[in-house]
Structures are given as structure tokens and as C-alpha cells.
Simulated scan of single mutants.
Amino acid sequence: MIYTVNNELRTTILDDGTAEEKLAEILILMNDKTFGQREAASIVGGRGRLYRLIEAGKIRTDKPTNKQNGKWFCNASDVLRHAVVIYRKPRKIKRNEKANNKRATA
């Protein structure tokens, strides 16, 4: 069966309700959406990784204005394709012992 999605011809339809089907549908729907540079960097795992993916041609970007501080627009489908989950330990809270001692005696 042939059908069109976002002006692209598709020859197969995944209709078995699997996770792969849902992921494919999400990526197709997000193809015409964009993320800003900071949002895209937080999704792919950092600004350095985002720059490497852009240089490798794996993430399509657009910068409509040719100004230094112009906003970048990264293709949402490409960004989600390279998403990474980063597990970090919670930061330890540094406490000032002198201030705590003063409060305890007062």
C-alpha cells in the first residue's frame, strides 16, 4: 500500500501496535517541528554532543538570520532520534559549618 505523509511516499504501514510503530509515528509527526538550541542540547545530552551531531549532518538546523545571536532551529525529529537519558546523582548540598554553629548557639 502506498500513501503520503509530509509529502513523502511511504510504502509500508506499521499497524501492529508495537513500540516501534509508535516511535515511527512520533518521528513522522515531529518532522516539521523545531526545537531551540538549548532545548535540543538538553535532549541529546549536552551542547558539545549537539554540535558534533550537527557537524556530522545527523541533525538538520536552520538559522534564518545571519546574526551572531540569531536563534537556531533544530529539526525535532532528528533531535528525538538521537535523544539520550542521563542519570545523575543529586548534588550534595554544601553547608557552611560556621553559620550552622552560630544558629545552634543562638
Rank of each mutant, 00 (worst) to 15 (best):
R91M: 10
R88Y: 03
F73S: 12
T61Y: 07
N66F: 07
K98I: 06
K67T: 15
V84S: 08
N100S: 00
N96V: 05
N100T: 00
A99H: 01
K58D: 15
N75Y: 04
D78W: 05
G70L: 01
N75H: 05
K71E: 08
N66C: 04
P64I: 00
V85A: 11
Q68A: 14
R81T: 15
P64C: 02
K89N: 13
K67Y: 10
N69G: 11
I86P: 00
Y87A: 13
T65Y: 09
E97H: 07
V85T: 14
N101V: 02
C74T: 04
N96Q: 05
I59S: 03
T61D: 02
R81F: 13
P90F: 01
N100L: 08
N101T: 05
G70Q: 04
N69F: 13
W72Q: 01
R81G: 14
N66V: 06
K89D: 14
R88N: 15
V84M: 08
K92Y: 02
N100Y: 00
Q68G: 10
R60N: 15
A83M: 13
R91H: 08
L80S: 01
T65L: 09
S77V: 05
T61H: 07
S77I: 07
L80N: 03
F73T: 03
A99W: 01
K63M: 12
N69I: 04
T65N: 08
K63C: 08
C74R: 01
